[in-house]
Design a protein around this nucleic acid. Sequence first.
DNA 1: TTAGTAATGGAAACCATTATCAATAAGGAG
DNA 2: CTCCTTATTGATAATGGTTTCCATTACTAA
Lengths: 171, 171
Amino acid sequence: MPRWDTMHDLPTGGQAGGRHGRGPLWWHGRFHGCGYRITVPRQAILNVLSKTSEHLSAEDVYIAVHKIYPNVGLTTVYRTLELLVQMGIVCKIDFGDKRARYELSEGPKGKRHHHHLVCTKCGRIIDYTDFIDKEIELLTKTEKALAKKHNFEINNHLIQFYGLCSECRKE
Amino acid sequence: MPRWDTMHDLPTGGQAGGRHGRGPLWWHGRFHGCGYRITVPRQAILNVLSKTSEHLSAEDVYIAVHKIYPNVGLTTVYRTLELLVQMGIVCKIDFGDKRARYELSEGPKGKRHHHHLVCTKCGRIIDYTDFIDKEIELLTKTEKALAKKHNFEINNHLIQFYGLCSECRKE
DNA sequence: TTAGTAATGGAAACCATTATCAATAAGGAG
DNA sequence: CTCCTTATTGATAATGGTTTCCATTACTAA
């Protein structure tokens, strides 16, 4: 049974190194800077999010973490995800299926920035990155104008398309 | 106490006439066409939605309807809103405050088409219509390309900006 | 080592939304 | 207008994702 005092056996390296070009554990600084502690559950949760390109629900994360650290509770998963969202490290997305989903965020200008096509019938999600450049251009312009007109400080945006995926169109 | 057999006292005219240029009760045809019945609760709910420019939650609608027709239940409100969404008459929006909100939809090309600025601190919602033309242009282009590439039939889209409203920026 | 405080996890509470099901009313046929 | 069929309704109970509580545990600094 895993123990809380064995943090060192956590697989912390892996993809994180190259993916963001910030070396492994790049988020440690962020945590320390905010006065947050680096704990096993938090590392495990971030690790799960780093290793997938899927849109995980809190329960998905819980199950994945639970396989390695059965002691981590669902409550902690929710709390940690909320914390990460608030820190801007993770994006919380709603696809209309009654459960929030989470993915690592890379900021609007990041390489992996994408939006979603949501199938309203089967719930399938397709990520797309097409037109991102023009999108960013328009968004930037819009953001500036809106910020000026409404004195609104824009930090994030959401774009989603809803419709029927190729499978569901057949029927 | 209102009775179910007094449908005729429902205020059905009013804004509906000019707003859509379709005359009052324009949705009656839609209902009949789908085989749906026109009932007091449904009329009352559509009436409430027609008379406001706010983003009402199911409970908001329930309370408003309840003032005139105390017999209408919350369940029916949920059911009717769901039906209207499915018919495309109403838009269901999620602002991240845990409750769905509803507003009359006017289609992407309609005059009143707008998007939202959501204050992540106080929850305030600001409608905006700026850049709608350019937005529509990009969206149309994007929709076409995505539909082609992913064989996805796009029926709707969602754009939202998140940030801090003028009030919340002060603190 | 020792406080002091952040973090955790199990259980219970929350609360918007749905399912159930008997009672009721809309709309068409006669 | 009346009857009949079936959609619709509404009170209540159930659901299920998310939060709250709170006693326990584990970092961190001194």
